[in-house]
Nucleic acid binder design. Structure first.
Lengths: 140, 140
DNA sequence: ATACAAAGTTGTAATGATTACAATATAATA
DNA sequence: TATTATATTGTAATCATTACAACTTTGTAT
């Protein structure tokens, strides 16, 4: 709940992205659902508010927002893209039992090896997988 | 060329994975091509040696080898799985210009946050994207 | 306010990687 | 060598994502 629609509108304008109802709603959804939703989850939920919404729009909107650096695509699974409105560097942990994705602080700067000197780094991702404490407890 | 077919055979046996010509060839291919090939690349190239090879076999073989920890799946792109025979922790950098994937040392232990205490971590991935030195040079 | 051009949205159809499945073949074991 | 479990194969299905053309909306200048 950090942002109001007005904040989003200003940020879109500052990045030269046109304002549209759909884009605002996608941003609003992501800011209210920081559980790293899939494209389909975003689409299905917004459909209740925007009955004419097309999934193509959701894809293109998320692509445009990601290009502008306003959201971040998460490819922790190979069969679906998820999106995160938190663009500051952090790691993602996916519980293979319940499917939940957890954020954790990750010192990305520390990862930069001298092997990458001369490389232009545009995007950094840290993905861990395993079992979360809740699922570990349920097994016993 | 670190491994001979015999080495692979022993490792498969020790992990209770049945020996097959296809599995040995997939392992051999990965050990000779450390460029992180896609499933399709592995399939297409092995087809020359094994004309009856099925892509389903390549998928199931890679899945079994990955489950056994003998190879590692790389999901740096959302539209294709790549495989790496180097299973020791390291980071991957994908050049968005030429598509090449580079390895780099990554201190994964340093990434473990206290936020993840109580989590069972089974798999760690570090994916960077950007432009490699060669492509940066070619732009000028 | 109105009109225009550029860009966004929509719906449908195509793409392409991955998986499901049933028949056949092979590997491990007795 | 026979038996049984498992692997391989080929085809068809699945499903996320993209391509595309028609229509709508936005931003801007008149």
């Amino acid at each position: 709940m950090k942002f109001t629609p007005d904040d989003f509108a200003k940020e879109l304008k500052s990045k030269n992205i046109r304002l549209s109802h759909q884009r605002l709603k996608v941003l609003e959804y992501l800011s209210e659902h920081k559980c790293h939703p899939t494209v389909d989850q975003i689409y299905t939920n917004l459909l209740k508010e925007i009955p004419t919404l097309s999934k193509t729009t959701v894809y293109s909107t998320l692509g445009a927002l990601a290009d502008a650096g306003m959201v971040k695509a998460i490819n922790i699974e190979d069969n679906e893209i998820r999106y995160d409105i938190t663009v500051e560097d952090h790691g993602h942990f996916k519980c293979e039992s319940c499917g939940a994705i957890y954020d954790f602080p990750a010192d990305m700067a520390h990862l930069e090896s001298e092997v990458l000197s001369g490389f232009k780094i545009r995007d950094k991702n840290v993905y861990f997988k395993g079992t979360c404490p809740m699922c570990l407890a349920n097994k016993n």
